[in-house]
Design a protein around this nucleic acid. Structure first.
Lengths: 217, 217
DNA sequence: CAGGATATGTAATTCGCGTTACGTTTCAGT
DNA sequence: ACTGAAACGTAACGCGAATTACATATCCTG
């Protein structure tokens, strides 16, 4: 009776051909994500997760072994999704300034969204307790984005718009320029949320400095 | 008998003319800093703090009211100290490249020291629970460093070494270039520690891009 | 439709830890 | 020394929460 809505909570069905156990599992993971992100690892309450997911505490423990196991499973299930969420739709063959601007704004907009920030806070906070998790996170996500930008830069370089020696390096530099201040501020000021205008301005600045300075490498 | 070394633990005496209460307070704050940084806010154990500081639980509660009060007091006492620790000895009238390199290396070296990283982790993790604290932290520290660099840049501009319109802005950009990747990695990979060579390399890159690109602003 | 496995709900069971109580000791000022 | 206040040490209190136990309900399979 308390879990009347167990399946409602379970968002779009993950896999159409999922057994009961799979459904339970998906619902648990989703609720776990919400609760862990909202309260942080230590403050997250197992009972609260069950309350949101429906189902029972017993099943949760049977499936994940405990809080730690649930947390790890939750992160695992999100890594792919969140990585591709980081994926900047690279602006195909757009001219350099326009392409960099679009990519930069998209990246920064995603990075400063509440959910991304929550994930980041959780990762940073738990880096010592869950080293492997933070590690895969720290390596996979940035790499994906960097590769995408590097490809775009190579495209532009071959079009003669800019001269770049090391595309990966250049991509790193650009993201450093774009990200830094706003990400830092957003992480520490939970109520601060950059406006579109601020983002545009920061990115415009980054584009100018990047184009002007990158050939000096 | 268990606090045989209460004063030993209390590092260099903070104020020569300190009453007993002041001594206790200083010892508590120091132990609190260690324990909070080591375990994080939730996992920090009041008894453990007393164990390290010497003194008694009762006194701790009498002086700080509780865990929250102790935490806030500890952070307060650290802010001034760490802010000035952040103070980059600005390289006076050194030539631009050399000055930027020195400032950048000093900054990055401090930023990637374990203690700075622990503080950062703690702040990020508790930003929601202690908004005011994180706020002063997020604003005071960077401002001090930025001001210092801005002053140096103005000096160099007046010496005709570079043309810059907005010194504060330029300083922000430089720190963004210097900080980003290594700080990000260090926060997420608790076992990673950049070598001096890595730091030098990153800063060299930043200097090149900055000098090449900053006039485009 | 039977039967065994799995899920459910609820209620213990522990356990860690923040906080408080209280009797004893130490200390500064007269 | 005398004395009142502050500090000490220790042990309890209380609570929140992870984990487990168990009796019941539900669902696939043969």
């Amino acid at each position: 009776m308390s879990q009347h809505d167990s399946t409602e909570t379970a968002s779009p069905a993950p896999e159409p051909e999922a057994g009961r156990a799979e459904l339970r599992r998906a619902a648990f993971l989703e609720a776990a994500r919400d609760v862990f992100l909202e309260f942080g690892y230590e403050q997250a309450n197992m009972a609260e997760i069950v309350r949101r997911a429906g189902g029972s505490l017993s099943t949760l423990y049977a499936q994940f072994g405990g809080k730690k196991g649930l947390f790890e499973a939750m992160i695992d299930s999100r890594v792919g999704e969140l990585t591709e969420q980081m994926q900047v739709e690279l602006a195909a063959h757009a001219p350099l300034r326009e392409g960099l601007q679009r990519i930069g704004e998209a990246f920064l907009t995603k990075q400063t969204q509440p959910e991304s920030l929550e994930v980041m806070r959780l990762m940073v906070a738990q880096a010592k307790k869950f080293p492997e998790i933070a590690e895969t996170w720290a390596k996979r996500a940035p790499e994906a984005v960097r590769k995408a930008l590097a490809t775009y830069l190579e495209d532009r370089a071959k079009a003669g718009e800019i001269r770049i020696e090391n595309y990966d390096l250049a991509a790193s530099v650009y993201f450093d320029l774009v990200r830094s201040r706003l990400q830092f501020r957003s992480l520490l000021l939970p109520n601060y949320r950059p406006t579109e205008a601020e983002i545009r301005e920061v990115v415009e600045r980054a584009v100018k400095v990047f184009i002007g300075g990158i050939e000096a490498l």
